[in-house]
Amino acid sequence: MNLLKYVSTLLVSLILLGCSNDDNTPQALSQSDIQGNWFLVELNANEPTDLNNDGISNTNLRLETDCFSTMAINFENDTYSFTYPKLDFIGENNDELSCTDTINTGSYSLESGTLTATTTIDNSTTTESVSVQLSNDLLKFTITRAQVNEYLDLGSSNNENADLETLEFIFEK
């Protein structure tokens, strides 16, 4: 469950910190290639996870909760807006998941497959770069364990998600 306690921070940062290693010959991209609305179609973890406590684990976290169903990115000119869920655990044992949509905005550029984004979160401005892959109408990036560990405490021995090695985000236009 620790994976989702900090997921709102992670989700904002994912677009900024991911990297893709799915394609040996990256496609040269420009801002015009990604302009428009992108909707999350898959959020894949390397290990099956049971976020909704129904006894069934999935690697595609979109199958675990409806919280990710409205996650989207809109790229226009030099700005972007990112809609993502703020996740909270509720209930007597923090075993129920509640989510509320949050929107962040910022500026971006894209050159040769490297997305550079600047955003302000909690009065702190951050600029990060991420390699992205575009295939047909799918925009993909993957973050690694090291990147996830910047935002999540996965080293804890009682963390059920301590084996998480990657998260792959796939958005569709």
Rank of each mutant, 00 (worst) to 15 (best):
M71W: 13
Y151R: 10
I103Y: 06
L134C: 03
N24V: 15
K140G: 00
E150M: 09
D95F: 01
Q147F: 00
T25D: 13
T127A: 01
D78C: 04
M71G: 00
G113Y: 00
A72Y: 10
V130N: 14
G18D: 11
T105Y: 03
T49W: 15
T9V: 14
E64M: 05
I73P: 01
N104V: 11
G55Y: 01
K140E: 09
K86P: 07
L10I: 12
D88Y: 12
R145F: 00
Q31N: 14
L11Q: 09
I143G: 11
G55S: 02
I170P: 03
T79D: 07
G113S: 05
Y151L: 07
V132L: 07
N136S: 07
V148P: 09
I103H: 06
M1Q: 13
L152D: 14
I103R: 04
P85C: 06
G36S: 02
L14E: 14
F82T: 07
S135D: 05
T120N: 03
T120D: 05
E76G: 09
D66V: 15
A162I: 04
S20A: 03
F39C: 10
Q35N: 07
F82S: 12
D137E: 11
N123S: 12
C67S: 09
D153L: 10
L14S: 12
G55M: 01
L11E: 15
S8D: 13
D23H: 13
Q27K: 14
K173F: 01
N52M: 02
D95R: 00
T79L: 06
E92M: 12
V41F: 00
Y80L: 04
D137S: 10
L164P: 02
E150S: 15
S30M: 02
I143C: 10
S69M: 11
L154G: 11
L164W: 05
E47L: 07
L3P: 04
N37D: 12
T105R: 04
L61G: 00
D163A: 10
A162G: 11
T142G: 00
N21Y: 15
V12I: 06
L29I: 01
R145H: 06
K86F: 05
A72R: 08
F82Q: 08
K140I: 11
Y151T: 14
L40K: 04
Y108H: 02
T126V: 12
D23K: 14
S20M: 12
N58H: 08
T79S: 11
A72E: 11
D78I: 03
N158T: 12
T83G: 04
S109L: 03
L3K: 15
I56S: 14
T25F: 07
S20V: 08
G155A: 06
L16V: 09
R145M: 02
F75D: 00
